[in-house]
């Protein structure tokens, strides 16, 4: 498989501090890779750099083209990013929000074509959001909003999807609903998915491979079973966990230190 994303020696400095330090990361076409790591490990920063949203040292290629050499509109046709806390413009209806995803296809100072509207109609239908088209985004629930954020990203028509903590504000039911949706879209549209996630068990159930970042560096990479080990998580999260074999992947159960028998 060709690499959809290839990062080499990716280094990002924010405010003089090295936040991402020499990260190598490959995501094959159609693969789902999840980046995990403790708070401050540089997960979101790495994701934003790969999406071309932050200046960086090193090299990031998307389908073989350096991301920092791509014109912005072209880049937006290749990679779509859903931020951890997307801004919800007050008063904007869902249809208009999803139409923002067509921005890279609209010439500067132009307006949406019928084809853009048709694309958005398709996406709204695919995500079962037709009934919400005329609703104001700021009146929707967390799960509904997350589907709308995904819809905007899909309207971009990009084959690479970067999702920063896509389930962090959702209850367990909506978490599963959103991740199943992403998995279905990945299969149907042949998308490549790179996410960051805090919920390790859930992350392990959906990802083909995982990358553990710690202190801005890659501490481990491999299948969920290779990365989600008691030793690695104890070393980098400073937590005691038990790993239980689940149906789709290893389940990570935190254990209170004082209750654990010696």
């Amino acid at each position: 498989m060709t690499a959809a994303i290839a990062a080499r020696a990716l280094t990002v400095r924010l405010g003089g501090n090295v936040v991402v330090d020499g990260v190598d990361l490959d995501v094959a076409d159609g693969e789902w890779v999840t980046v995990i790591g403790p708070n401050g490990a540089g997960k979101s920063t790495a994701l934003r750099a790969i999406g071309g949203l932050l200046p960086f040292d090193g090299r990031v290629e998307l389908h073989g083209t350096a991301v920092d050499r791509l014109p912005r509109r072209r880049r937006a046709m290749i990679v779509a990013t859903v931020a951890q806390t997307p801004v919800v413009p007050p008063g904007m209806q869902v249809l208009d929000y999803v139409l923002l995803g067509r921005t890279p296809y609209i010439r500067p100072l132009g307006r949406e074509s019928e084809s853009d509207l048709a694309t958005v109609d398709d996406v709204l239908g695919e995500l079962d959001l037709e009934a919400f088209a005329g609703r104001r985004l700021d009146t929707l629930s967390g799960g509904e909003r997350q589907r709308v954020f995904l819809a905007r990203a899909l309207a971009q028509g990009a084959r690479i999807l970067l999702l920063d903590e896509p389930t962090s504000a959702l209850d367990i039911g909506h978490q599963q609903e959103v991740l199943e949706l992403v998995d279905r879209l990945r299969a149907e549209r042949g998308l490549t998915v790179l996410t960051t996630m805090h919920d390790l068990s859930t992350a392990g159930e959906y990802a083909d491979r995982m990358v553990l970042l710690s202190g801005g560096r890659v501490a481990a990479a491999g299948t969920p079973r290779e990365v989600l080990t008691e030793r690695l998580l104890a070393a980098h999260y400073r937590v005691r966990v038990r790993i239980i074999e689940g149906g789709q992947g290893p389940l990570v159960v935190p254990v209170r230190t004082e209750n654990v028998p010696p």
């Binding site: 934003r48 999406g51 071309g52 949203l53 912005r72 509109r73 072209r74 880049r75 937006a76 046709m77 990679v79 779509a80 990013t81 931020a83 997307p86 801004v87 413009p89 904007m92 208009d96 923002l100 995803g101 921005t103 890279p104 609209i106 500067p108 100072l109 132009g110 307006r111 971009q156």
Partner: peptide
Amino acid sequence: HRRELDVLTVGDEEATSLGL
């Protein structure tokens, strides 16, 4: 620039990710 002002309502970083 009226459409671009609508895109700017989602913030600079998201507007950048949309190609602006």
